[in-house]
Nucleic acid binder design. Structure first.
Lengths: 224, 224
DNA sequence: CAGGACGCTGAAAAGATGCTGAAAGCAGAA
DNA sequence: TTCTGCTTTCAGCATCTTTTCAGCGTCCTG
């Protein structure tokens, strides 16, 4: 999931990026309306986060221009104002949701998730090696064989597949899959990795979930 | 990964230290802004955790002074206040992230990880000679061959690569990698240098870790 | 040249970390 | 309610990492 942040306060943009990245989103930030519009119109983003008050082109204008180009990427507007008429103005300009600063990070995340969910825009499979994870059915497929993953197994497998170029620490997996508030412990990750390894080998996959001591897990393809 | 905690409430500082140490970070704590600034400006930390409300120099001032010295270590600010203006003030003073007390330990960890990750992700590999250290997978690569480093080996190797123009004394390496409070001795460094030399030559690297008597170690490229 | 300081190494002990199977807890379906 | 499958918990084992240590070689200094 790729998110573009258009926000002239660099530090705030950075902290939004941190927040979203820690949840596994891919983010990019630009710091003025003009570049924002340009980037947004590439059409490669799943969501725009757009500040209203910016020097030069403001958020309303950006939203309006983007929509005028028939780009339907959902837009989340950020503003210091909380007046009804501002909200209406933003929505009329094409925004999908309106968040008043200061906002709670939870609220932002909930909002981002809601917008992405609403779009229903997902890739419908992830492949690596000889193996494929079907995101709509939750099936792990290898050649003729396939096996069903439970919800948790699916989340973990997907996260691993999405992060194939990185080592994922148990900590990160926990906070991403079980959430910050859960009282899940690292052994949960170990157990689920165990489940997944069993299922992977049962369908003859050449994917290995390699444990890297003290660092985390990494997906590898046998014979590479 | 080395973290400096600047927090006048000793109990809170201790509990943060415990938490982070249990996750394998090396921590040090100081209990007032003045010493905090002094330590921070040594530039040997990967992250600062900084309380806003302290007698004497407060967190904003520390952050501002540290930034004024062009020290770009990420700063995580802690505060009891959750007002927008405080958050912005902190961000403007150079903080990278803002956490309101009381905070969840998991949230703190996620935050710390996010900040460290962001920093680490700016460079995702370090190369020298014919050899490359992949920071996201922890692999030491030379041409076709590659070998996995353990967590400690990785830390030492990275430190050497990052300081390729300097001679690193065992003492500096010890304090940086094992931490000031650890009871590690210089032989640890010698042993790890030995491990690394073995791994370097096993993949055919032209890097040598040269010992300079009474001074320390230095990375050199064969045939230069 | 002798002696001491320093650095290197292999082997073994100590310590951490990761894996696993079994069982208990839980929630939804029948 | 009972059944079923998913998730969590736990304890013990296995494995890998880190530390420790003793002995040897080399370099420097007097």
């Amino acid at each position: 999931m790729r998110i573009l942040i258009i926000e002239d306060e660099k530090l705030l943009a950075d902290s939004i990026e941190d927040l979203l990245r820690s949840k596994g989103f891919v983010t990019e930030a630009v710091y003025d309306g003009e570049s924002g519009e340009e980037y947004a119109e590439l059409g490669i983003y799943d969501l725009l986060i757009l500040d209203v008050m910016m020097p030069g082109m403001n958020g309303y204008e950006v939203a309006r221009n983007v929509r005028a180009k028939r780009c339907s990427t959902p837009i989340l507007m950020l503003t210091a104002k909380s007046e009804l008429e501002d909200r209406i103005r933003g929505l009329n300009a094409g925004a999908d949701y309106y968040l008043t600063k200061p906002f709670d990070s939870r609220e932002l995340l909930a909002c981002v998730n809601a917008l992405l969910r609403r779009q229903g825009n997902q890739v419908d499979e992830l492949s690596y090696g000889n193996t494929r994870l079907d995101l709509s059915t939750g099936l792990l497929v290898c050649g003729e064989k396939s096996i069903r993953l439970s919800a948790r197994e699916f989340d973990v497998m997907r996260f691993l597949l999405q992060s194939r170029d990185q080592i994922l620490s148990k900590e990160v997996i926990l906070s991403r899959i079980w959430g910050l508030e859960s009282n899940a412990v690292e052994n949960h990750v170990e157990v689920y990795v165990g489940f997944l390894r069993k299922k992977l080998s049962s369908i003859g996959s050449n994917l290995r979930i390699e444990a890297i001591r003290r660092m985390g897990y990494h997906l590898e393809v046998d014979g590479e």
